[in-house]
Simulated assay, not measured.
Amino acid sequence: MNPKQLEQISNYVYCDSFLNSLDIETKLLPNPYHDYPFLVIKNFFSKDICDEIVNSKIKDNDAIDAKVKSENYENHIDKNIRKTKIYKLDKKYRTLYNKMFKLYQSKIEQYFNIALTTSTKIQVLEYKKDSFYVAHSDDSNMIMDNDKLIGFKCVVPNRKLTSVLFATSYDNNSSFNTFSGGELVFNYLYDKDGNQINFKPEAGDMVLFLSNPYFTHEVLKVKEGYRLSIVQWHDALVV
Results as ranks from 00 to 15, higher is better:
S211V: 09
L96Q: 10
L96N: 04
H76S: 13
L165F: 06
P32H: 08
K57H: 04
L6D: 06
P37T: 07
K42V: 10
I81P: 00
V238Q: 12
F215C: 02
L149Y: 05
I64C: 11
K59M: 15
K57L: 09
D191P: 07
K42E: 14
Y188P: 02
C50L: 05
Y226D: 02
P201M: 03
N173Q: 13
N198C: 15
N61E: 13
K47Y: 05
D65Q: 10
K59E: 14
V155G: 07
L161N: 01
N172G: 10
I41V: 11
Y87T: 07
N113S: 14
I24K: 00
I150F: 05
C154H: 03
N11W: 02
S140W: 05
K221F: 04
Y73L: 13
N72I: 00
S131L: 06
E202F: 13
A135F: 06
Q110K: 12
K91H: 12
I77A: 02
Y188Q: 01
S180R: 01
N198L: 15
N80R: 14
K102L: 14
K223Y: 15
M206Y: 00
N31M: 08
Q8Y: 08
E7I: 14
F44L: 15
F199K: 06
M1D: 10
Q105I: 11
C15D: 04
D90M: 06
N177G: 08
I143G: 02
L22C: 07
C50H: 03
D130E: 15
L189G: 01
A63T: 05
S137D: 05
V239E: 14
K69R: 14
T216V: 09
Q5I: 11
E109L: 04
G151I: 04
Y93G: 04
G194Q: 13
N55G: 08
K148D: 09
I77E: 04
E109N: 10
N43E: 11
Y190H: 03
K67T: 15
Q196W: 06
N195D: 12
M144P: 03
S56Q: 13
P201S: 04
Y111H: 09
L19M: 11
L149R: 05
N113P: 07
M206F: 00
N195E: 12
K47C: 09
K192E: 15
N198E: 15
D193N: 15
Y104L: 06
K192C: 12
Y127S: 01
D35S: 14
F209Y: 13
S140N: 08
D171S: 09
K57G: 01
N187F: 03
L165V: 01
F152W: 15
N11V: 12
A135Y: 09
M206W: 05
I197E: 00
G194L: 12
